[in-house]
């Protein structure tokens, strides 16, 4: 997927400005930068939630996107995860919830889950999707630090196994180090620089 001259402004201020960026299938990207530097805006532009002021995206990949504050559907944890999935994938959904430490909450109402449990539930739904590019906006922020690293590693391993491209905005250095095959540094003027650990 090739992004060229992608730009977005809010009230005359450039929030995102990407002259050229090639997104590699199967790679993992971390979005890194201070608050308000346009990481979420970039993800929303890629997901089609926002429309860019200019720029093109060639050879687009199929995309799924997990926003920073996903809506909590008033249904069970399993039903939330099953949204968008075919009925015959219920076993996969249960296994995924188990892997993410939610085996005991499968039939619990999603509205009764804690913040960390909710993020795991949202992550389970995102990981079970079939899109080529998975966009995650701060997906580990509310997860307990003692098991967050394990979940980050699991997320990366799962995407690698499925050949999906992972692009995640994170705010913890250790998560950046685990995921950051490529790192997109966002600065306050909307500029984005690509660094690679390869």
């Amino acid at each position: 997927m090739q992004i060229t001259d992608l730009q977005k402004q809010f009230d005359g201020k450039i929030v995102t400005d990407i002259p050229s960026l090639a997104i590699e299938l199967g790679a993992s990207y971390v979005l890194w930068g201070a608050n308000g530097t346009g990481k979420s805006t970039f993800l929303r532009l890629l997901a089609g939630i926002l429309t860019s002021d200019s720029g093109t995206i060639e050879d687009p990949l199929s995309i799924s996107y997990q926003p920073q504050h996903p809506y909590i559907f008033k249904m069970s944890c399993l039903q939330n995860v099953m949204l968008g999935l075919h009925e015959d994938r219920e076993n996969d959904a249960c296994e995924m919830l188990d892997c993410l430490g939610l085996a005991g909450q499968i039939n619990a109402s999603a509205t009764s889950l804690s913040g960390g449990q909710l993020q795991r539930m949202f992550l389970a739904r995102s990981l079970l999707g079939n899109s080529e590019l998975l966009l995650l906006d701060e997906p580990f922020a509310a997860i307990d630090s003692d098991c967050a690293d394990e979940i980050v590693r699991f997320t990366l391993a799962h995407c690698k196994e499925k050949g999906r491209t992972l692009m995640a905005a994170v705010n913890a250095q250790e998560h950046r180090d685990i995921l950051g095959e490529y790192c997109l540094f966002f600065s306050s003027d909307g500029q984005v620089q690509l660094h690679t650990s390869k």
């Binding site: 929303r44 997901a47 089609g48 939630i49 995309i63 799924s64 996107y65 997990q66 926003p67 504050h69 996903p70 809506y71 949204l83 968008g84 739904r125 999707g129 899109s131 966009l135």
Partner: peptide, 12 residues
């Protein structure tokens, strides 16, 4: 806001 963003993100 959150509802549409979540649904479009899944995508539904």
């Amino acid at each position: 806001g959150d509802f549409l963003e979540t649904c479009k993100g899944i995508p539904l």
